[in-house]
Amino acid sequence: MSVVNDQIKLEEETLIPANRIFDLAKRLLKNKGAVLGLFIIVLLFLSAIFAPLIAPYSYQAQSLSKMLRPPGQGHILGTDEFGRDMFSRIVYGSRISLLVGFVTVGISLVIGVVLGALAGYYGGLLDYIISGLTDIAWSFPRNLLAIAFIATLGPGLLSVMLAVALISWAGFARLIRGQFLSLKEQEFVEAARVLGMSDFRIIFRHIIPNALAPIIVLTTLEVPKAIIVEASLSFLGLGAQPPTPSWGSIMSSGRSYIAMAPWVVIFPGLMVMIVVLGFNLFGDALRDSLDPRLRD
């Protein structure tokens, strides 16, 4: 036994500090992609929260004398067909994108976790039914299904959020079911069962924490997807209604002037791209640092 104790003492010298969140933050900051992604996301949040302070003009103040001005001269990003300041509209547009992105992913995450966990943990007939539903939801093209939902719900931002949530839960449900199927066979889950723990505790304390990394990665991939779907639905006139400044609807109204005033289409499009990139970069880095087995 003394050999063991010596060994234990030796290892204690090199013990790591146990502050987990601090640890995670430190690892994240080492990753350049994470820093860039985080920077973009923080900027987006700031512009959404402080939009009235940042925007130099109101997003709906029209000025027909300043129609379709190119960038420069008091309007950094130019003006649109009603002479509204593009920069101000884009800043306000970030509110719509964030709202849609997070609310829809929040709803679909809840649906997906509940259904996926039930299917994966209990299996049998329940799994058969839930997996069937998931496959049906999964088999439709996203935008088409969203359009069909909006046709019944009527256009508007709320409809868009519900529609996107109702089509994107299937991805979460599938992922979570798969995670449950493999994790419930793990010995530590068996151990929890032998130790007399309840299904509820096993699901929430032992399985879900171990499935967190892929869930977070999927979430960060779904937020930008939702932003894109919202933009495309608004582009089609099914989402945010004018004068609400959604990046999609700005592009939609600008497309008739694309030859003479390309900035009306380019800048909102660029914003969509940058935001999607930011979320993806951050999500990937978060996955790497959240997994204790991948540390250092």
Binding site: F188, A191, R205, H206, P209, P292
Partner: peptide, 8 residues
């Protein structure tokens, strides 16, 4: 395999 990797 028999210890939950996310619990101290």
């Amino acid at each position: 395999a028999s210890l939950n990797p996310r619990m101290a």
